[in-house]
Design a protein around this nucleic acid. Sequence first.
DNA 1: TGACAAATGGAAACTGTCTCCATATTTTGG
DNA 2: CCAAAATATGGAGACAGTTTCCATTTGTCA
Lengths: 189, 189
Amino acid sequence: MTTGKPLRADARRNRDALLAKARELFANGCFDLRFDDFARLAGVGTGTLYRHFPTREALAEAVYREELEAMCAHARELQATQPAMEALTTFLRGLVNHLHTHEGLARTLATLMAARSGTLADGGRELGRAVSDLLTAGVQQGSIRDDVGAGAVLTALQGICAACEPPGSRADADGAVTLILDGLRRHAV
Amino acid sequence: MTTGKPLRADARRNRDALLAKARELFANGCFDLRFDDFARLAGVGTGTLYRHFPTREALAEAVYREELEAMCAHARELQATQPAMEALTTFLRGLVNHLHTHEGLARTLATLMAARSGTLADGGRELGRAVSDLLTAGVQQGSIRDDVGAGAVLTALQGICAACEPPGSRADADGAVTLILDGLRRHAV
DNA sequence: TGACAAATGGAAACTGTCTCCATATTTTGG
DNA sequence: CCAAAATATGGAGACAGTTTCCATTTGTCA
């Protein structure tokens, strides 16, 4: 999926340099510098930047793709070792915790989720599938209601991602997760 | 709050023309045309546009301010005539229904909520207060839990607003509201 | 090693945003 | 009713960020 055709040596080198510099910048909270500067700071030309990453979002997606995949893998692991409701709880709490200290990831996820279609959205869809699998397991185990889909959970998560800027967002995000989790619980009928 | 100083006659005329044209464009799904064009289409100069509405967001906020205030008034009315949990349910379901057919409002709300501070955010804060009041009433009536604040609800709502584009968003938005409402409910302890 | 393909960089064109001010309109008060 | 003062106008043009393009360089393969 990642490899279309083998990249030439210098091309891969430049691509990696761009990714490394972008990752570093994002980690330092520099999200809004001009796109050109990612190239300049990574020591490559503008054209090279655009060839590898046609848009700012494509660059962000590539930077966080690995991290996102790791999180989804973590979700699968949790699902394999715990009851679904517990796994979901751990996963969402951990996700929000991680987003809180990685604003770049939160912003990127917000963007990816907003672009439900298009090549870009791959990353968002993978997270969607992780949540969907957890929900399905929970429904089968009888701990999660079956009348609310993964899309609903993702919609709420999108809000958490979009609202990641400082004041009070942490408490609000935690509260939102509480609502999601308690809202999903199947109650005695 | 709205009136700082009385506007000169021609100034008011131009401002109204801008608002009317913008409202019409938004209603037709034209969100992404260049800012200058709002001026051209309304038959005023660029400078006039910028004097009245310094940013795209300020224009959108002005266009939807009345509508937003009406919704908040509706919330207060519901609160005065029904138990809080019922009022909240009616309000949120109605809100989502309205957002679904008014994408411009949804986009605007998403933007306003993202800008938690600044003059712009007034509109967002008003919605926040409506929700907060409903929650407080519900807590006093014992139907709503007291360990989750209005911010959590708004965070989830932000997701609904941000995810307003077509495919399947309606069902997901409804599901998210279901989670919010059921998550808020105080259960027998 | 030569020939071919792939990739580069950065100048220049483009696009949307925003400022500025000479001119025009409205208001005020005599 | 008429200046003079205050207020508002419009749109040319400066500006900043984005994107394209292609002559040149670099890597690959036989």
